[in-house]
Design a protein around this nucleic acid. Structure first.
Length: 625
RNA sequence: GGACCCGUAGCUCAGCCAGGAUAGAGCGCUGGCCUUCUAAGCCAGUGGUCGGGGGUUCAAAUCCCCCCGGGUCCGCCA
């Protein structure tokens, strides 16, 4: 793995600071650059910046290419650097294992790696925030896992973190569902089925029927109608009330107008709609929670979008917008224009210079509100007690998120606009399935989780393991599959792959932890650093030592980049090293007390690093597998 | 048409932003290892025009330009 230096944080710090403790690799790199500075005349910053891990062992532990530098072929180091050897343009440093070992383990405790001081940054992570109209499907999975892991991670790193789920209970989709329910006289969910599944069927049925009615009035697209009819048949097999619902909806001259009417009355505070909609939204949210708890995901707050409407906060923003100089007419509607947003501000707000930001319409024709405008009001709320807001939202919403930042900036909320971060992630593909919430075609997270858990259970039975760990293992398999990939890349998912619990999986990491933990719990003595034989720290053990020492550094770059895969991949590599060593040498059975001691320290280090990383990523520590 | 993301082994992914020495994992395939602290493991082998072409550089998977392919967005939806 490459050692990376001098990262410029993705989000600049203002009055907050990350102070890492015990970052011994960083100290070694500083020492190396100081030594070379004296010989080469290059600034230590330049040297430091170029340090990386050499591709092969024989080149040492740290390496920096310095062309034209004229240092001696061999330099003796000081504390963490043993010596530096010149090979071609490279200066290769060998780490002083004795000193690294004693420094590292003289202070390694349960908190190892995490900063001792709080950063002083108050961070909101808004994530998942799925529309409460159908069960959570695979689309929301990546969001929930990334958001939850980010929040845990930042919290361990010393941010004061708040997690929020934005309940989008005021959008058109909720209006569609309310319309369908009204037509069915507000039925209660069937007891045999989870509420979110029941409402999901009503929503998909209503939405499909409304589209059929709409299309049948302008009969020009035969193919499309045939397709919808096929979907109708499909839905009617899953939802017995489908034809009754269709009959009811067809009685309305203009279903679309009915949906708008409901939305308007609801937004204006009609009590019946307020109550009825809140009731089903909460039932669906309960379903979400059941799903999310399987994944180990929970929230500090659920923020109902509708409350922003009824409290007048949205209206206040609309008024502010309308009195700003940036309002124009766009297709006969009042809209915010972003024409006058300066180019250099675009850079600050991470908006591509080449992008012409589309105008943002302020309200619908009938006066009801639109999502992005409501989101402005919501963003102000989120910033009330925070410095940074991270929105984990799919990349499809890049433009609205840009409009949001740009609008906030133009309205004068510059600090907020600058500290609002869109954590974008690409789509998850599941074995080529095509998903559509509006048509009720989706694979739910529950289905995936159950499939994974049942494979895990089978595996546990085969191995005579502890069946009570099945949920933990299934959860970690799913979370690992997501957290080890870069969020910006489209992710191909398949149940087969997630349930392949091999050496590149959550359970593999848990298994490695179990091994380390089991050794430590069988050891009853007291570890004494004086007894440790550092001469024994060679080959893979040496790699393990250095890897453990690198942990704070990895945490730091992960914190600054917000790319959790840095940490995930790192612990996978550490687990590989540990397992490789584990199969070759004995630890508790080692007869030489001094060797046994130094090895036990390594095991303790591995256990601590894995355990702390698990905490930060939301992977369960299990004792037995 | 414009903007953004992605393209690395048969498949799924690291590495790219911060350029350096024979490009790494897992799955798959081949063969080995359980009287030893948990074999969800270990060891060995197999497999790559880093999408293509130019450019910058002593040095390019990595930076720049062009092109090709896939995805997403450009709504009075979210």
């Amino acid at each position: 793995m490459k050692i990376i230096i001098y990262y410029s944080p993705i989000i600049p710090f203002k009055d907050c600071e990350l102070v890492m403790s015990q970052d011994l690799i960083e100290e070694a790199m500083l020492e190396m650059s100081e030594i070379l500075e004296g010989y080469t005349g290059l600034s230590r910053e330049i040297i430091y910046k170029k340090i990386s891990e050499p591709p092969r062992k024989e080149f040492g532990d740290l390496s920096t290419p310095l062309k034209g530098a004229n240092a001696p072929d061999k330099i003796i180091g000081k504390k963490y650097i043993k010596e530096i050897n010149k090979v071609g343009i490279y200066y290769n440093a060998v780490i002083n294992v004795d000193n690294l070992f004693s420094s590292l383990f003289s202070q390694l405790d349960d908190r190892y790696g995490f900063p001792e001081k709080k950063t002083g940054r108050r961070t909101v992570v808004e994530h998942t925030s799925a529309n409460p109209i159908h069960p959570l499907h695979i689309g929301a999975l990546r969001n929930a896992v990334i958001g939850d892991a980010l929040a845990r991670f930042l919290s361990y790193m010393g941010d004061e973190v708040t997690t929020r789920f934005y309940v989008n209970d005021s959008g058109r989709q909720v209006g569609v569902l309310a319309y369908g329910l009204e037509k069915l006289h507000w039925p209660s969910p069937l007891p045999s089925i989870k509420a979110d599944y029941f409402y999901g069927l009503v929503y998909a049925s209503t939405s499909t029927i409304v589209d059929i009615v709409k299309l049948s009035k302008t009969p020009n697209d035969k193919g499309k109608i045939d397709e919808l009819v096929a979907i109708a048949k499909e839905l009617s097999e899953r939802f017995p009330e489908f034809w009754k619902l269709k009959e009811e909806i067809e009685k309305d001259a203009d279903p679309e107008a009915e949906i708008n009417r409901i939305l308007k009355e609801y937004e204006e505070g009609n009590n019946e709609y307020k109550e009825r909609i809140r009731k089903f939204v909460n039932e669906i949210l309960n379903g979400f929670n059941e799903t999310l708890s399987n994944l180990g995901v929970s929230f500090n707050f659920y923020d109902y979008e509708s409350e922003l409407l009824w409290s007048g906060k949205v209206k206040k923003i609309i008024d502010e917008i309308l009195s700003s100089p940036h309002v124009i007419y766009h297709k006969d509607a009042k809209a915010i224009s972003f024409e006058k947003l300066p180019e250099d501000v675009k850079d600050i707000l991470k908006i591509p210079r080449g992008l012409k930001i589309p105008p943002l319409v302020v309200t619908r024709k009938d006066g009801t509100s639109l999502y992005t405008i409501r989101d402005i009001a919501y963003t102000l709320e989120k910033f009330k007690n925070s410095d940074l807001v991270i929105n984990v939202i799919a990349e499809e919403q890049t433009i609205p998120q840009i409009q949001l930042r740009a609008a906030l900036y133009l309205l004068g909320f510059t600090r907020i606009a600058e500290n609002l971060y869109h954590y974008s992630y690409a789509m998850v593909n599941l074995e080529g399935t095509k998903m559509s919430g509006r048509r009720g075609r989706y694979v739910t997270i529950d289905e995936l989780f159950n499939a994974v858990e049942s494979v895990v259970k089978q595996k546990i039975l085969e191995k005579n393991g502890d069946i009570s760990t099945s949920a933990s293992l299934a959860r970690s398999a799913i979370r690992y599959a997501i957290l080890s990939a870069s969020a910006t890349k489209p992710l191909s998912f398949s149940v087969n792959r997630v349930t392949d619990l091999n050496e590149n999986s959550g359970p593999y990491l848990q298994y490695t932890y179990v091994r380390a933990n089991s050794i430590m719990s069988k050891f009853t003595g007291e570890l004494n650093l004086e007894l440790a034989d550092t001469k024994d720290i060679v080959n893979t053990k040496r790699d393990i030592l250095i890897s453990i020492a690198k942990f704070p550094y990895i945490l730091k770059i992960t914190y600054e980049s917000l790319q959790l895969e840095n940490l995930t991949i790192y612990i996978k590599n550490l687990a590989d090293l540990f397992n490789s060593w584990y199969s070759r040498e004995r630890i508790l059975q080692e007869e030489d007390e001094r060797k046994k001691t130094s090895r036990l320290y390594l095991v303790k280090g591995v256990k601590t690093v894995l355990g702390n990383s698990f905490n930060a990523l939301g992977i369960d520590k299990v004792e037995k597998m």
